[in-house]
């Protein structure tokens, strides 16, 4: 875009270009997403820099399975670990693995999706390969991969990516197939545009919106996958706290009334998923609108 005579800039009539006003309007239009983003930001910052009331990896035999109180806000687990500190600490590993898996899926899935959206034979083969691949029970494949690797964390990232690459491919394919037929792509072909120019100036900029929406949804989905893996005891292992393993640890205590051990990490998963879903809705809303 550097050589273009004027950068694309969208003007909103009757609005001074104050950044603060824009933010306020965004919040007013998408309160759910704003709340969600705030939650995620606070969670991430706290887990990275914030002071935690107790050592999240520590144990305290004298204070095991205590209910929520002024000293232990979310109570303590079976080994006397502080549930609150552990829930916050777990965000570090859970969110970073989810993000890493999503990023890998994005980087591989988008180009593959583009490749699968041409009219050539290679494209057809790719789609058939994709169908075959998705016929596997992918979650079980992911489980097997991670446990066979001896619970290597990079394998967790690979597993999340494997689960999500097909989604990116299908999305890109269907979106790009439609855009390839559009008049402005025909116009670009008629003016002699090369394939890279078609892809980077005409196709991709028009699918960024849906890619962003999909990415937000993929992060949410990855958090669930990750929690499922660690719930099954695969992936993140003790003493590093993760939401999934905390839920597993606390599941046994539910029946005896010690609800807090599993409920708070479960709530963390729920809120994160909600937050990213809300964000996806808001992005979808905005990109749909800016076409008009």
């Amino acid at each position: 875009m550097a050589e273009s005579p004027a950068p694309a800039r969208r003007r909103e009539p009757g609005l001074t270009a104050s950044r603060w006003t824009t933010v306020r309007r965004l919040v007013a239009e998408h309160p759910g997403a704003a709340l969600g983003v705030t939650f995620i930001v606070v969670l991430v910052l706290w887990s990275l820099f914030g002071p935690l009331p107790y050592d999240p990896r520590g144990t305290d035999g004298s204070a095991s399975r205590e209910g929520p109180s002024g000293t232990h806000w979310f109570g303590t687990d079976g080994t006397g670990g502080d549930v609150f500190s552990r829930v916050i600490e777990a965000a570090k590993i859970d969110l970073s693995l989810a993000l890493a898996g999503t990023a890998v899926a994005l980087v591989i899935g988008v180009p593959l999706g583009l490749a699968a959206s041409t009219k050539g034979k290679g494209s057809q083969r790719l789609v058939r390969g994709l169908d075959a691949f998705q016929a596997f029970p992918l979650l079980i494949l992911a489980l097997a991969l991670v446990s066979l690797s001896g619970n290597q964390l990079y394998m967790v990232v690979v597993a999340i990516a494997l689960l999500n690459i097909p989604r990116y491919m299908r999305l890109l394919r269907s979106e790009v197939l439609a855009i390839r037929e559009s008049r402005f792509v025909e116009a670009a072909t008629a003016m002699g545009a090369s394939t890279p120019r078609l892809i980077f100036r005409h196709l991709l900029p028009n699918v960024w919106g849906v890619i962003l929406v999909q990415t937000s949804l993929t992060i949410a989905n990855s958090i669930v996958v990750l929690s499922s893996l660690s719930f099954l005891g695969v992936g993140v292992s003790a003493p590093t706290p993760s939401w999934g393993s905390m839920i597993r640890d606390g599941a046994g205590n539910m029946s005896s009334g010690e609800w807090w051990i599993a409920t708070f990490p479960g709530l963390a998963v729920l809120l994160c998923v909600l937050a990213f879903n809300q964000l996806a809705d808001a992005i979808g809303d905005r990109t749909a609108r800016s076409y008009r």
Binding site: S4, A6, A8, R183, A188, M191, G192, R201
Partner: peptide, 25 residues
């Protein structure tokens, strides 16, 4: 083309759209 709006990339400024043939040729 017949459809003026559909024939213009909605994400590109008018300047970039008109500049594109020059950049290519």
């Amino acid at each position: 083309f017949q459809e003026p709006y559909e024939s213009l990339n909605p994400r590109m400024s008018i300047g970039s759209i008109v500049a594109e043939p020059l950049q290519i040729h």
